[in-house]
Amino acid sequence: MTVATTGGDQAGGALERGGGSLADVVETVLDKGVVIDAQVSVAVVGIQLLEINARIVIASVETYLRFAEAVDRFDITPKNQKGLPDLVEGASGAVGKGKAMSGLGKAAKEISGAVVDSLGDRDTDRDRERPRRRRDKER
């Protein structure tokens, strides 16, 4: 196979640096930090805080239906294609667009590159999946 490591797969390309979105801020700082309890002999003032709840993952029927819907949405069809693991073992960025995941073990090796390719292109909008703020009462 031709190894063309300059094809946009340089180290660093896969990692996003960031933060700064409200969701990130909420997840980073909420419920963290030293707690100064009222027991401490300090005049702590009860101040009204807006209700901000980081979303907690609870597997629910809603989650299940959403996953099932994703199967439809992306038209995900697994194609078992044996023989790929060999390629994956030696994966450099050039094993094909799909395949730089040698660290993932069997499961990742079984998926066919073709499936990954066809799906990868469709999945352009991840923002939809950002954690939502959700009030417990609604659950």
Partner: peptide, 8 residues
């Protein structure tokens, strides 16, 4: 990545 994950 949801499609890759589910495909997997």
């Amino acid at each position: 990545e949801e499609p890759a994950l589910i495909g997997d």
